[in-house]
Write a protein that binds this DNA or RNA. Sequence first.
DNA 1: ATAAGTCCGACTGAAATGGTCGGACTTAGT
DNA 2: ACTAAGTCCGACCATTTCAGTCGGACTTAT
Lengths: 132, 132
Amino acid sequence: MFRLSKKSDYGLIALKHLAQHNEESISAREIAARYHIPAELLAKVLQRLVRKGLLASQQGINGGYILARDPATISIVDVVEALEGPISITPCERGDDCQQLQMCSVRDPLLKIKAKVVRVLGDTSIYELATN
Amino acid sequence: MFRLSKKSDYGLIALKHLAQHNEESISAREIAARYHIPAELLAKVLQRLVRKGLLASQQGINGGYILARDPATISIVDVVEALEGPISITPCERGDDCQQLQMCSVRDPLLKIKAKVVRVLGDTSIYELATN
DNA sequence: ATAAGTCCGACTGAAATGGTCGGACTTAGT
DNA sequence: ACTAAGTCCGACCATTTCAGTCGGACTTAT
């Protein structure tokens, strides 16, 4: 519950590492070895971050990944949403019509709470992760 | 991601309903019908809340559930933790030794964020849910 | 031109969740 | 005191989601 998936975990680790070694291209294999992460899985995570515009990839023999934006402008929410889709507190939010909507008596309060949580996650950037 | 399970959702709905109809015993079946929730599933949720001391159950022909504590003293965190165990942001927290601990470069920052999230969830009580 | 090394998308296995079923208990009425 | 209705309660099964794996396509330095 409320546990972020390993995909997000791995993504944050990689982004932090890239932020600390900025301006140089680092391969997925290298990061994976450094943190004992399955290489192919990390590659899949990173390629998804590329598609979402957070990373840039360089193919070829000395290729790798590099940050596409200033780490100070990348928040944890950005990473999580890129890897797992929009974050939703309530099950109802996902297009399901909520099984007769079950009167949704708790929907509105939970949406407010979600907003607060998102704000908390948005307050921390990759830059802060890398320097603190 | 960050989605609370239906168990928690149902639990919150039921507690809110019980808080709004305080001092009277209400059966799981009745609440389930009111909000279109599978009756047996809701019963399982409620019985778990009983075991955790949030509700009191009354068996017999006119039995049902009733709040065991002042709704103002029950926060959303209490409900969620009662139904899904301690909330953990990082996968590492759960006793697993984190696969060589993967240097856990993001562990500490995430723990701080978790604390903030818990505070947000703890700020809202069932009483507020029922009155607002 | 070749080959090493990388990124990339699709497939498989495992865990957690949602949901269901039958049993045990308690209580009101006769 | 007995009966029967109605409730709580714990164990079981199906489904979805997630973690992880494998093979292919591309790019680049030699």
